[in-house]
């Protein structure tokens, strides 16, 4: 939310790692800070928490959490690189869970229909977000707060109207349970493998395809991006649809794992995903960041969030530690970014 000039200038420099992968030195890459942060946090908990934390059980503990946030954090991170925000995910997650549970649980229709409807709902909300952001030129933070409230209200109203209740259970058939809601080895949620898939797709899109260049350019300077012939409008709508889709996917996964869906829940994903992305070194003002950074940020956040239970610390202090970590990560990333900018160019904002 800094001044426009600042975001533009940092944006253009930050676009470098995407435009040409010429920036060789690790220390200047966007994810350098987050890698260091992750290692530090992991070592800290490994030393203070003892053996269970470094056993498979300990890994599963934070990986399961990381996978769910991670699937949402990826498109949120890409949106932020493009200079936008999406808070409506907090409402889309429970909405899509309920869509699936109502269609396939309450009405007993086959799962593919329920899943397709849930995912389509996510895409629709994304499309509306994108459309409104473009048409109104209002910051996406505000637009998506609006759609968040609207989707929350719709979910509650429709759920009570259709089923007479605020929660619906669903007993998925074994195939879909195995696909979306199983625990591999009794502890690793299958979502982790989906997350890996999403990471690969996101990494390809952002770093190897022309699509990625467009995103960085859009986050750097919207006007010049448009002048350069980038279909900025289509791109913005696509990005919002991606985040809607991913949020809906997480919702579907939750309904499958816990075999029930309710109106409330999901709000924690809003700030959590932003925190992951920021810890991962993405600039809120756009134009700077990487998929690897987002993934590392997500892992760091999850380790801190779950690691506490393996230590002897008072769980009451959990929020204090998370908040302090976030501030620390932000400051560290800021330092790294400044370093990267001063080395790569003399011009400073």
């Amino acid at each position: 939310m800094n001044s426009a000039t600042q975001s533009v200038s940092t944006g253009t420099h930050g676009a470098r790692p995407g435009l040409g992968v010429t920036l060789g030195r690790l220390a200047r890459r966007p994810e350098a800070g987050s890698l260091l942060g992750m290692v530090a946090v992991f070592l800290f908990f490994a030393l203070s928490a003892g053996t269970i934390f470094v056993s498979p059980a300990g890994f599963a503990s934070w990986l399961n959490v990381a996978a769910e946030i991670g699937i949402v954090a990826l498109p949120i991170g890409i949106l932020m690189i493009a200079g936008e925000l999406d808070l409506s995910i907090g409402a889309v997650i429970p909405a899509s869970s309920l869509t699936l549970a109502i269609i396939s649980g309450y009405y007993g229709l086959p799962e593919p229909i329920g899943i397709a409807a849930a995912l389509a709902f996510g895409l629709l909300v994304g499309a509306i977000n994108g459309f409104l952001v473009l048409r109104t030129e209002v910051p996406s933070l505000i637009v998506t707060i609006g759609t968040m409230f609207a989707v929350m209200g719709l979910t509650l109203g429709l759920s009570v109207l259709l089923t007479g209740s605020t929660s619906t259970n669903i007993v998925p058939s074994p195939f879909y349970k195995a696909l979306l809601g199983q625990f591999v080895g009794g502890m690793f949620q299958v979502t982790i493998f989906w997350w890996v898939g999403f990471i690969i797709v996101a990494a390809f899109l952002l770093h190897l395809s022309p699509f990625g260049n467009w995103v960085y350019a859009l986050g750097g300077d919207k006007i010049s991006a448009r002048n350069a012939g980038i279909p900025t409008e289509r791109l913005t709508i696509t990005l919002f649809m991606m985040s809607g889709f991913c949020a809906a996917f997480v919702g579907v996964g939750q309904a499958m794992v816990y075999q029930s869906a309710q109106v409330v829940g999901g709000q924690s994903f809003i700030f959590n995903s932003i925190m992951c992305v920021v810890i991962g070194g993405v600039l809120l003002t756009g134009g700077f960041g990487s998929v690897a950074g987002i993934v590392l940020g997500t892992i760091t956040f999850s380790i801190v969030n779950q690691g506490i239970y393996f230590t002897g610390f008072d769980p009451n202090l959990g929020s204090v530690i998370i908040g302090a970590l976030l501030l620390l990560a932000v400051l560290m990333n800021d330092t790294f970014r400044k370093m990267a900018l001063t080395y790569s160019t003399k011009k400073k904002s």
Partner: peptide, 27 residues
């Protein structure tokens, strides 16, 4: 002092203060 957007900074102080208030009151 930093170039970090205030949304992010205050998100950090938000979570930290929540924890401090809870922990402080319970302790």
């Amino acid at each position: 002092r930093t170039t970090v957007p205030s949304l992010i900074i205050t998100l950090g102080t938000l979570v930290a203060m929540q924890g401090i208030v809870l922990a402080g009151s319970v302790l």
